[in-house]
Simulated scan of single mutants.
Amino acid sequence: MPALPLALALVAAFAPAGLDLEWQAPEGCPPAAEVAAATSKLLGRPLDPGGPAERVRARARVVREPRGFRLDLELQSPAGSERRSLRDRRCQVLADAAAEIVATAVDPSLAAGVPPALPPESDGTWPEEPAPSDINQSTLQSASAPAPPPAPAPAPAAAPAPVAADDPLAAPLAAHARADDPLDGPTPPPAPAPPPDPWRASLRLASVFDQGSLSGPTGGFAVALGVMRRRFRVELGAAGLAPRETRPDPTLAAGARLSLWTATLRACGVAGIRPRLELVGCGGLEAGALLGAGLGVEGARTRAQPWFAVVVGPELAVPLTRGVAVTLGADAVVPVVRPLFVLDGVGPVFRANPAAFRAVLGVQLRIP
């Protein structure tokens, strides 16, 4: 009976073989015992080493890659040798796939559901397409299905109908099309270059009204030399306040005549509000001497006390021409040292105030 030898051959071909499994994987991947247990579960029996002729030798090695893991699997079975490479973001997926492949090699009747081999890449890098997150039956079926036939190419667009030469609308339409084409229009002019901002010299003469630096309101003058640009200025100036008399007791003649002479270094930032109006913010240091001369006492002398103060305040500048501007400023003066004058036999005559106010009106010459 020819059917009996054929059946015996099929039984021998699909008879379960023994297994010799070698598993190497980085930390965090399933160990060899777990892979062997999964293989045994798929086979439905404990693993049997089997005889040398029917033993399946499986050598699996998992390596970590920048975007996941790669499984390199070598199989040696009575049917021959086979090598496979699989990739996935999770090592557990590769361990399950290795168990299925090894179980199928041991028992060929489990061939359904085993993923196909993927060609290994020589450079060890990932392909440009995103790797699948899992290996399942639907993925394998879609990968093995033949590609659908390409869609037919779309028919070329019909060329526009020619316009007759004697059509009265042809010329206006053509002219309108040329006028609307941005490529045929005139080239816009380039943006104008910013105006130059050279360094300029300045000379300022000003009158000063002061309240608080001396014993009462007084006036004075100021002169300043500086350099300037459109948004920045630096000035070095000198100022003097007219003398002011003070007496601790108005009924007595004893008192002092006070005057102040200073030098100031200040820096300013300029914001142009309008073409003919500039808003300036300034800050600087003032140093000088507060002079006091005794009055109404014998042997009165003139003494000088050091003067140091911080000066800050806004200023408005109105350029009349390129070289002339009118300035109006208001400064707050805060003495760092408050001088004290004392008359023998009378006592304290004057002590500088904690703060003073000044209004400055001047004319500024700008060169060139």
Rank of each mutant, 00 (worst) to 15 (best):
G296N: 07
L265G: 12
A36K: 15
E100A: 15
S142Y: 11
A9T: 06
V310N: 03
V234P: 13
R274W: 08
L365C: 07
P146I: 04
R366K: 14
G294S: 14
L140E: 15
A191S: 11
G272F: 06
L225I: 13
T187G: 04
P243C: 03
R322P: 03
A222S: 15
V11R: 14
A161W: 09
A151S: 12
G226Y: 11
R244T: 01
G80I: 07
P335N: 05
V163K: 06
A165Y: 11
R70C: 07
Q305M: 10
L110N: 02
W23A: 14
A352C: 00
D167T: 03
L47H: 08
P46Y: 00
P189Q: 13
L71M: 02
A171Q: 11
S40V: 09
P335S: 05
V223D: 01
A267V: 13
D249W: 00
R244E: 01
A170E: 05
V270K: 10
L265I: 09
Q24S: 15
E245C: 10
I273F: 08
G50Y: 11
R200P: 12
G51S: 14
A9M: 07
P31G: 04
S215D: 00
L285I: 14
R276W: 11
A164Q: 09
A206M: 01
R358S: 08
R366A: 10
P354V: 02
P52C: 06
A153S: 08
R204M: 10
I367S: 04
D134W: 10
P46C: 00
A38M: 13
E129I: 06
V363C: 10
A267T: 11
A98H: 07
R244N: 01
P115C: 01
N353D: 11
P243V: 01
P52A: 09
A9D: 12
R61T: 15
G269W: 02
R366M: 12
S142V: 05
L19H: 03
R84T: 10
L343G: 12
A145Q: 11
P162I: 15
Q211V: 01
P275I: 07
P26A: 02
A222N: 10
R87T: 13
A25S: 15
Q92D: 15
P49G: 11
C268D: 15
G212C: 02
D107P: 06
Q211D: 05
A158H: 02
A355C: 01
D210M: 01
V312Q: 05
A332Q: 13
I273K: 08
E34R: 00
I273A: 14
R70Q: 09
R55Y: 12
A222H: 13
L183K: 10
R231A: 06
D20T: 05
V11C: 09
P189W: 07
P52I: 05
A153M: 06
A177V: 02
E286T: 11
K41W: 14
V318F: 15
A330Q: 12
R230W: 06
S202D: 10
S81I: 04
G292R: 09
D123R: 15
F350W: 15
M228F: 02
R301F: 08
L203V: 08
A158N: 03
V337N: 02
R59K: 11
V11E: 11
P108Y: 13
P46F: 00
A239L: 08
S85Q: 14
